[in-house]
C-alpha cells in the first residue's frame, strides 16, 4: 500500500497502530454462499399494505383494547340516555306524590321513591343530561381558553409566556372546589343559578391545567425540524403554529381533556351537593345525592342510585382517557 498521506507521520501519530492489526492466530476467510444471502436493493420502499396515518394507527391499536371498548360503550350509553331520557323511562320524574314518600321499589318503579315521593329511577335518568352538559361544555371552554393561552405562551415565549404563565399559576393555586364555592356566592352567580353559571365557574378554575399541558406540548413541538423547515418554506410564525405545532401537540390535550371531563362532572355534583351548584329545580345527580343525604340511615339506596350512575360515568371517562393515552403515546405503544 502506498503511503500517500504522509502528514500522518509529520503530526507525530503512531503510524503502526493506524496500520491495522494482524492476529497471531490464523483466521479463516469465510464467505457465505451467495444464494443463501441474496443482496437486496438498498433501502427499498415498502409498497404493500394500506398507508396509515398516525391517527389511523392509533385507532387500530385503540379498537383492540378492552379498556377502550368497555368505556366507549358506557359513554355512548350515557350520551344516549342524556339525549333521549324518555326512551328509558315512562315515568314523569316531576310527578311526585307524597303518599309514595320513601316507598321501596315496585313494578314500574324499580328503584322506589324519594322523600318527596318522586320516582328515583326516572330522576336518575333525567339527571344525566345536566351532569353531561356541565362536563362537556366545561371541557370545551377549557380547551378553547386554556389551549389558546397555553399555545401562545409556549410558542412565542418571552414576556407573553411570563405573563400568561403567572396568570395561570394564580388560578392554579386556588383549589377548584374552594374557588368555585366562592365564585358561586358572588351576587351575579348566586342570583342567576343555572347550568351555565356552573360551567363558567368550573372553566375559570379549569383552564390553567390545560394551558400548562398545551404549553409543554407546544414547546416540545416548536423546536422540531419540520417547524423550522416550514418557516424556511415561507410560512409565517403564526401559520406554522396553527398548521404544524398545534396538530402535533393535540395528543396530550385530548388525553387530559377526556380525564378532566369526568372530573368536572364530579365537581358539579360536589357543588350541587353543597347547595351552591345547580338550582334545586334542575334535576341532577348532585342535587339528588344532596337531598338523599338526610335519609341516609333510613333509606341508603336513595343516595346510592345517583351516586352509582355518577361513579360509572366518571370512571368511563377516566378509563377512556387512559386508553387514548396508551394509543397516542408512542412510548407506551407496544413494539411496532
Amino acid at each position: 500500500m502506498p503511503e500517500n498521506q504522509n502528514f500522518n507521520s509529520e503530526a507525530g501519530l503512531p503510524v503502526n497502530r493506524r496500520a491495522g492489526k494482524v492476529s497471531k492466530y490464523k483466521i479463516e476467510h469465510y464467505v457465505a454462499p451467495l444464494d443463501e444471502t441474496p443482496l437486496q436493493a438498498v433501502d427499498s420502499v415498502k409498497e404493500t399494505g394500506k398507508p396509515l396515518s398516525m391517527w389511523a394507527e392509533a385507532w387500530r391499536s385503540l379498537r383492540k383494547q378492552p379498556l377502550f371498548i368497555i368505556s366507549a360503550i358506557l359513554i355512548l350509553a350515557v350520551i344516549i340516555v342524556a339525549a333521549f331520557p324518555q326512551w328509558f323511562t315512562s315515568q314523569d320524574p316531576t310527578y311526585c306524590a307524597l303518599e309514595n314518600s320513601n316507598e321501596p321499589g315496585r313494578e314500574g318503579h324499580i328503584m322506589g321513591f324519594n322523600l318527596q315521593g318522586c320516582d328515583i329511577y326516572s330522576r336518575v335518568i333525567y339527571g344525566t343530561r345536566a351532569s353531561l352538559l356541565v362536563g362537556i361544555f366545561t371541557t370545551l371552554i377549557v380547551i378553547i381558553v386554556g389551549g389558546t393561552i397555553g399555545a401562545l405562551a409556549g410558542f412565542y415565549g418571552g414576556w407573553i409566556d411570563t405573563i400568561l404563565a403567572r396568570l395561570g399559576d394564580i388560578f392554579f393555586a386556588l383549589p377548584l372546589i374552594l374557588g368555585a364555592i366562592i365564585v358561586m356566592q358572588l351576587p351575579a352567580f348566586r342570583d342567576n343559578k343555572s347550568v351555565w353559571t356552573v360551567i363558567i365557574t368550573l372553566a375559570i378554575f379549569g383552564w390553567p391545567q390545560l394551558a400548562r399541558i398545551t404549553r409543554g406540548a407546544v414547546i416540545e413541538a416548536r423546536n422540531a425540524d419540520f417547524v423550522k423547515a416550514s418557516r424556511s418554506l415561507g410560512l409565517s410564525k403564526f401559520k406554522s403554529l396553527v398548521k404544524h405545532v398545534l396538530p402535533n401537540s393535540i395528543a396530550p390535550i385530548i388525553v387530559v381533556a377526556t380525564v378532566n371531563l369526568g372530573v368536572y362532572i364530579v365537581a358539579e355534583a360536589t357543588l350541587s351537593f353543597l347547595g351552591v351548584g345547580l338550582p334545586p329545580d334542575i334535576m341532577s345527580w348532585g342535587n339528588d345525592i344532596a337531598t338523599a343525604q338526610t335519609q341516609l340511615r333510613s333509606n341508603p339506596m336513595m343516595l346510592m342510585w345517583p351516586a352509582l350512575f355518577l361513579s360509572v360515568t366518571v370512571l368511563s371517562f377516566i378509563m377512556l382517557g387512559d386508553a387514548v393515552r396508551d394509543a397516542l403515546d408512542p412510548k407506551a405503544r407496544k413494539g411496532a
Binding site: 493506524r18 491495522g20 492489526k21 494482524v22 492476529s23 492466530y25 483466521i27 479463516e28 476467510h29 469465510y30 464467505v31 457465505a32 443463501e36 444471502t37 437486496q40
Partner: peptide, 25 residues
C-alpha cells in the same frame, strides 16, 4: 478494519463474511 484483527460482516441477520480485518478490507 483499523481496530480489530478479525472482522465479521452481518447483513439481514446473517453472517455474510468474516476473516482477517485487512484482508476483508
Amino acid at each position: 478494519a483499523e481496530r480489530a484483527e478479525k472482522v465479521v460482516v452481518m447483513y439481514k441477520g446473517r453472517v455474510v463474511e468474516y476473516g482477517p480485518a485487512l484482508e476483508i478490507l
